[in-house]
C-alpha cells in the first residue's frame, strides 16, 4: 500500500497527534517487567480517523490510555499540536471498551457531566445536551437511567457524553464490540455522520477489520507481545462513505491483506 491515497484528508500535512517511540512496561508477577508496547510511532492528522487493529492483548487499550493521559509511557512521548500530554483532560474525549455511564444520572445528566466540569451555565448545558441527544437519536430517552437502555443506546450516550465538551480528539476503544451486527452497522454510520459534522480527529480501536476499513482514513496493524506497528495502511476512500464501500473491490483486497497480516501475527 504505497500508492498515494486518493482522497484521504490531509494525511501528512499537519500531524495533530504524534506518538513517538512509545514503550510501556508493566510490572507483572514477582516484579517481573512485561513489555506491553515496544516502540510504537503513530501520527494522526487533523480531522483524520485512524484505526488501530491488532489481536487481543496487543496493547491497544494501553495506547489509548496513554494518549488520554490516564497512564504514563515508560519512555517515549505523546504530543498534540506540539504540546506534551501530562494528564487527562477534556480536550481528549474517550469512549471506553466497557460501559462507563453514571448509573445514578439520567441520560441527559450523563451527557451534561463534561459540560458541568467546564462550568457551562445550566441553560447552555440544557441546549447543548438537547442538540447532542438529537444527533444520537435518543431525545425521547433524556430522562431515563442507563439501566433502562439497550447496549447500543448506552454506547451512543457514552459517545455523546465524550463529544459534549467538544474535544480536539476522540479516543474510541472498541466502542461497538458488544453490539449485534445491525446495531453495529447503524453505529458505524452514526460515527461517520458525527465525524463529517464535527470534523473531529478520531483514534479508534477495533477487532473488526471491516469496521476499520469502513471508518478509517488510515489503519495501523499492530503485533502482539510486545505491541509494535507491523503495517501502516492508507484507506483509499473519501470522506463521503456509504454502504457501497462494502462492495468496492479495493475494500475486499484490503480486508484480505489485513487479515493475512493479523493471521501471520498470531501464528508467529
Amino acid at each position: 500500500m504505497t500508492e498515494p491515497a486518493i482522497a484521504a484528508t490531509g494525511t501528512k500535512a499537519a500531524p495533530k497527534l504524534v506518538l513517538e517511540n512509545i514503550v510501556k512496561d508493566f510490572t507483572g508477577r514477582r516484579h517481573k517487567t512485561v513489555r506491553a508496547i515496544d516502540g510504537i510511532d503513530i501520527e494522526v492528522g487533523d480531522g483524520e480517523i485512524v484505526c488501530l487493529v491488532g489481536a487481543s492483548g496487543c496493547g491497544k487499550t494501553t495506547l489509548l490510555n496513554i494518549v488520554a493521559g490516564l497512564e504514563q509511557p515508560t519512555s517515549g512521548g505523546v504530543t498534540i499540536d506540539g504540546e506534551a500530554i501530562v494528564g487527562p483532560g477534556p480536550d481528549r474525549g474517550m469512549v471506553f471498551q466497557s460501559y462507563s455511564l453514571y448509573p445514578w444520572r439520567t441520560v441527559s445528566e450523563n451527557v451534561a457531566f463534561g459540560l458541568e466540569c467546564i462550568g457551562m451555565s445550566r441553560k447552555d448545558r440544557a441546549e447543548r445536551v438537547q442538540e447532542l441527544l438529537g444527533i444520537i437519536g435518543l431525545g425521547r430517552f433524556a430522562d431515563n437511567h442507563p439501566k433502562e437502555l439497550s447496549g447500543g443506546m448506552r454506547q451512543r450516550v457514552a459517545i455523546a457524553r465524550a463529544l459534549a465538551p467538544e474535544p480536539d480528539i476522540l479516543l474510541l476503544d472498541e466502542p461497538f464490540g458488544a453490539l449485534d451486527a445491525q446495531t453495529r452497522r447503524a453505529m458505524q454510520e452514526f460515527l461517520l455522520l458525527v465525524w463529517q459534522r464535527t470534523r473531529a480527529t478520531i483514534l479508534f480501536v477495533t477487532h473488526d477489520i471491516e469496521e476499520a476499513i469502513l471508518l478509517a482514513t488510515r489503519i495501523y496493524v499492530l503485533s502482539s507481545h510486545p505491541g509494535r506497528v507491523v503495517e501502516e495502511i492508507t484507506v483509499p476512500f473519501g470522506t463521503n462513505r456509504g454502504p457501497s464501500v462494502l462492495r468496492d473491490p479495493r475494500f475486499l483486497d484490503l480486508r484480505d491483506e489485513i487479515q493475512e497480516l493479523l493471521t501471520t501475527q498470531v501464528e508467529r
Binding site: 488520554a68 490516564l70 487527562p88 474517550m94 462507563s100 457524553r161 465524550a162 459534549a164 465538551p165
Partner: peptide, 21 residues
C-alpha cells in the same frame, strides 16, 4: 468501578469533583 473515575477525568473533572460527584 475504575472506568467511572477515569471516564470522569477524561471529561475534565478534577479530583474533588470526582470524589463528590
Amino acid at each position: 468501578p475504575r472506568e467511572l473515575i477515569t471516564a470522569s477525568y477524561t471529561l475534565g473533572a478534577g479530583r474533588l469533583r470526582v470524589l463528590c460527584r
